[in-house]
């Protein structure tokens, strides 16, 4: 397996977005691309990442291989890559180590690292194709701000979506608060748009702590999509630009 990405910053950002949620994970390499699926230790949330092969500058994978990686170790290695460096990842069939090569844009600096791999027994979950009742698209910076603002007031947030608005409500020890967003009527910048597609109104409760973990993915994408259906896990998606891939989180709802 060998793959090369022009910008190391993409992998660095992906890692930042998942390392607080997941300790070890298998990076599954196949001719289609690089993917990862992992649950947090309490099995409340799930991370699903896909980088399509065509999003790489070079991608070669003769046979599917899983690279078991400790994310704290990978973070240490990726700290040695400049944001604008290209990154080449290599692994052989034995799958006991992975090689990382970082090259500066001017090609005058080349650094190489080898990471020991681990055997990870991971349960893969089958996520059914779902027609969600409500889909909300909003700026990822707005999502991050709401989670961080409401997180200081309480542990859970009630998300209510109607045709007119999406409302985030918190009820905590010191009091309560809410933020309500209305779909944008004037579209100045596409990245500042709030869009709501609704089959039926939804009203659900989620842990703010996890929503805050997911907000670490905000640097990956200008917009985030929240998909909700009653009594079903929330899906939060950050897309890495057209055709490149995505990072999705799933969070089980709080149930009365």
């Amino acid at each position: 397996f060998e793959a090369r990405l022009t910008q190391a910053s993409l992998i660095k950002k992906i890692l930042e977005a998942i390392k607080d949620l997941v300790t070890d994970a298998n990076f599954d390499c196949s001719p289609e691309g690089l993917s990862l699926q992992a649950m947090d230790s309490s099995h409340v949330s799930l991370v699903s990442m896909v980088l399509h092969a065509q999003g790489f500058e070079m991608f070669r994978c003769q046979r599917a291989v899983s690279l078991g990686i400790n994310l704290a170790s990978l973070t240490k290695i990726l700290k040695c890559a400049g944001n604008d460096d290209s990154i080449t990842l290599r692994a052989d069939e034995k799958g006991d180590k992975a090689e990382f090569v970082f090259e500066s844009q001017s090609q005058d600096r080349l650094s190489e690292f080898e990471l020991k791999l681990m055997d990870i027994d991971s349960e893969h979950l089958g996520i059914p194709d779902t027609k969600y009742s409500a889909i909300v698209e909003m700026p990822s910076s707005e999502y991050r701000r709401i989670c961080s603002d409401l997180g200081v007031m309480g542990d859970t947030v009630r998300i209510s979506v109607s045709k007119e608005s999406v409302k985030f409500q918190v009820d905590g020890d010191i009091g309560k608060g809410s933020v309500c967003l209305h779909p944008s009527s004037v579209v100045d910048k596409p990245t500042e748009v709030v869009k709501i597609s609704l089959e039926e109104p939804v009203d659900m409760i989620f842990s703010i702590r996890y929503l805050n973990y997911f907000a670490k993915a905000a640097p990956l994408s200008d917009t985030v999509t929240l998909s909700l259906s009653k009594d079903f896990p929330l899906q939060i998606e950050f897309k890495f630009g057209e055709q490149m891939g995505y990072l999705r989180y799933y969070l089980a709802p709080k149930i009365d």
Binding site: H43, S45, H124, L125, T156, I205, F232, A252, K254, I255
Partner: peptide, 14 residues
């Protein structure tokens, strides 16, 4: 009071 659901209750294990 509400209880936290787990993902296996919603998704099948492959």
């Amino acid at each position: 009071a509400s209880s936290q659901g787990r993902l296996e209750n919603f998704f099948s294990i492959k």
